[in-house]
Design a protein around this nucleic acid. Structure first.
Lengths: 340, 340
DNA sequence: CCTGGCACTCGACTCTAGCGAGTGCCAGTC
DNA sequence: GACTGGCACTCGCTAGAGTCGAGTGCCAGG
C-alpha cells in the first residue's frame, strides 16, 4: 500500500501541472513535461493506485486526473520544495512597507501587498489587544456626563470608546481618574488587566466611585472582550481570477464568509506559536470556505506573536509560492513592528 | 417627438416588469399585467417609438424590450412613484441602530443595515473630518523623540498619528505643547485649521519651536489632507445575486473599484447639499462601474451634512425602494448623530 | 388612431454524429 | 516482477440540422 517514490513523483507532477494549467492532466502530458523516465502506461498504473488511495480523481470517466484535497495535503506536507521568493518580490515587499507611518498604515499596506503578491484574498489581523500592553489611557470630557476613553497600546493600536457616566462629573475628577487608571494600568498586558481593574474599583471611594465603576465596566467590556480584534481585507477581486472555474461557480458563500469578522478571526486569529498553517478545502471548519484553501501564520517582533495574517484562495493554488510569500511578509511585518 | 402619456406609461411598465422578472418584456405580457387599455399592437407601436428615442432596446431581434440607461433615467426622474417603506423595514432600521455605542459602531451597523435592506452593496462614509470641528487634541509620549497625536472630533471620530520629532523633548514640553494646541484649535472647524496651525508655529519660539514645526506638519498633512476620509463597505456578496446576469458576467471590475477608497469616496463623498443622487450605468464617471447604478445621499444632524452613504447595484434595480431606503437610513443616522 | 391578422426573425432547445483525449487491460519483453 | 506497446472503449465536447415559439413589424380595415 505504501506509495513508492515514483508514485509520489507522479502526484507531485500532477499537482504542479494542474495548478499551472488548471486542466485535468493525463498520462501522456505528464511524461512529456516531466522527466519521469517511464512510459505513459506505467504512469497510468501509478495513477490508478493514487486514485484508489484518494489522492487524485477523475472529473469524468475519460478525462485526466485532478488532485483531491487529500492529494494537496500530501503534496504540501511531503512533496513541495520551497520556492524562494524572486528578487523582484523581495524588493516589492521592502518598497511597500517602507514609509508606513502608522499602525493603520502598516496593516493596510501589508494586506494590499499580500493580495498583490499572492494574487489572492489577503487577510491581516491587527495586533491583538490581548497580547499587547497599555501604553497610555486618556479620558476626554465630551459633556458633563460623558467621557471619551482612549487607549493606546504599545503596538500602536488606538481604541476609543464612549463612557456614559451615571451623573455629572467635575473636570478635576476627570483628571484624578485619568491619573489613577494610568498609574495602575500602564505597562500591564491587556490580558492581565481585568483583576487590576477590579482592584482599582475597590480602591476608590467617595464621589469618584460611581464614575469609576462605570469606567471599569467599559474598560473591561470594550478593551478586553468585545470588538477587541480588528481585521483588514483586500484582494476580493482576485476571487474572480479562475473565471469562476474554481469555487464551483459561486462566489456567494465565500464573499459572505469574508464579510463576517468573526469568521475571519477564526481563520486568521487562531495562531499557534508553531508556524505556518495550511487548511485545504474540506479541512476548513467554516462551511462556506470548504471550496477554498487558507494559508496563515502569526506575525510579531521576534518570537512574540501579535496577530495573524494569511490568504484565502482556490484549493488549486500554488502552495509553495503562497506559503513562501505569506511567511516572508509576516517576517517583514514582524521586523517592522519590532522597530517601534 | 413628444412622448404622450401612454408611451410614458408603457415605459414605466417595461421598467417595472423588467426589474421584477429580469427578463426582456414583450408587448403581450405588458397588456396582460398592466391596465393599459389598448391592444398589444398599439403597445408595439409605442415601443417602436420608445426604442427610436433610445429609452429601450431589444437584446435580440426577436425578443422583448429592455430599458436602456436613458430609459431608467427617465423613469427615475419622472415616472417612479415613491414607494413608502414597509413597517417591517422601519422597525428594522430602528432596531438596528438603537444600541449603537460608538461612532464606529454606528457606521458599521448602518452599512450592514443598508446592505441588508436594499440587498445591494452598501457604502457609508465616516463623518467627514473637514466638516467637523476639533474637540480635543492629545499628545502621548511614546519615546523621547516620538509622540502619538490623537485628535477627537465633535462627531466622535478619533484619528491618531505618530509624530517623529527632530530631537528629544522633555515631558514638560509635551504638556506645554498639548496645552498650546488645544487652546488654539479646540472648537475650530477642521477646514479652517490650516491658517491657525500656521499662526501657532509663528507664535512659538525657543526650544519648543522645532517640535512645533514638525507637529504642525503632521497636523496639516494627516488631519486635513491625507487619509482624511474613512469608509465602510458591506454586502459585496449581494453582487452575486442576479446569478451573474447583471454586470455582463464579470464582477471583476466592480470588486476592484470597490476596493479603492478613492473611488468610493468619489462615489459617495461628493455630496451636494441638495439630496438624493442617482447615477445610472453610463452616467458613472468611474469606468469600472459603468454597469452599475449608484444611489447616494448625504447624512448629518438637521441640514448639516457630515458625510455620504449609498448603495451600488445593478442598473436594473428597484429604484423607488432603493431610493426610499437610502433616504430613510440617512435620516435615521442623521438623527442619531444629532443626539451626541 | 387603434386593432386584428399575418408573415417573418431568430434565439433557445434538442438531437445526432463525429472527434479525440484519456483510460483500463492484456499480452509480450527485459 | 516491473515495465511497455497496443488496442478497444468511454464519454465529454463541438458542430450542424431541425423544431419551437415568443416577439416583432407591417398592413388593411374599423
Amino acid at each position: 500500500m505504501g506509495l513508492d517514490d515514483r508514485k509520489l513523483a507522479v502526484l507531485r507532477a500532477i499537482v504542479e501541472d494542474y495548478v499551472a494549467t488548471q486542466e485535468p492532466v493525463g498520462s501522456k502530458m505528464l511524461v512529456e513535461r516531466h522527466q519521469l523516465g517511464v512510459s505513459p502506461a506505467t504512469v497510468r498504473n501509478d495513477m490508478a493506485v493514487l486514485e484508489e488511495e484518494g489522492y487524485i480523481r477523475q472529473p469524468h470517466t475519460s478525462a485526466g486526473r485532478v488532485p483531491t484535497d487529500r492529494g494537496y495535503r500530501l503534496f504540501v506536507d511531503r512533496l513541495s520544495r520551497v520556492k524562494p521568493l524572486t528578487p523582484a518580490e523581495r524588493r516589492a515587499i521592502e518598497r511597500f512597507l517602507v514609509g508606513a507611518i502608522d499602525l493603520d498604515d502598516v496593516v493596510h499596506r501589508t494586506v494590499r501587498l499580500l493580495a498583490q503578491l499572492t494574487r489572492q484574498v489577503a487577510v491581516v489581523q491587527y495586533p491583538s489587544l490581548a497580547r499587547s500592553s497599555v501604553r497610555h489611557l486618556e479620558l476626554v470630557p465630551i459633556s458633563t456626563t460623558r467621557l471619551m476613553l482612549v487607549m493606546i497600546a504599545d503596538t500602536g493600536r488606538v481604541e476609543q470608546r464612549l463612557v456614559e457616566l451615571p451623573g455629572p462629573i467635575p473636570p478635576d475628577d476627570v483628571i484624578d481618574l485619568r491619573q489613577l487608571v494610568n498609574e495602575k494600568l500602564v505597562g500591564t498586558r491587556l490580558a492581565d488587566t481585568p483583576p487590576l481593574v477590579q482592584a482599582l474599583v475597590d480602591e476608590v471611594s467617595g464621589e469618584l466611585r460611581p464614575a469609576m465603576v462605570t469606567l471599569s465596566t467599559v474598560l473591561l467590556e470594550t478593551l478586553v472582550e468585545r470588538h477587541e480584534e480588528r481585521i483588514a481585507l483586500a484582494g476580493t477581486a482576485n476571487l474572480t481570477r479562475g473565471g469562476l472555474l474554481d469555487f464551483q461557480g459561486s462566489l456567494r458563500p465565500i464573499l459572505e464568509a469574508l464579510e463576517e469578522e468573526v469568521v475571519l478571526l477564526k481563520l486568521i486569529g487562531e495562531v499557534e506559536p508553531s508556524a505556518m498553517r495550511v487548511r485545504i478545502g474540506d479541512e476548513n471548519e467554516i462551511d462556506n470556505l470548504r471550496a477554498t484553501s487558507v494559508v496563515s501564520t502569526g506575525y510579531g517582533p521576534g518570537v512574540t506573536i501579535l496577530g495573524g495574517l494569511g490568504v484565502v484562495g482556490p484549493t488549486r493554488m500554488d502552495y509553495p509560492s503562497t506559503i513562501a510569500t505569506v511567511r516572508a511578509v509576516a517576517r517583514y511585518v514582524g521586523d517592522l513592528l519590532a522597530q517601534n
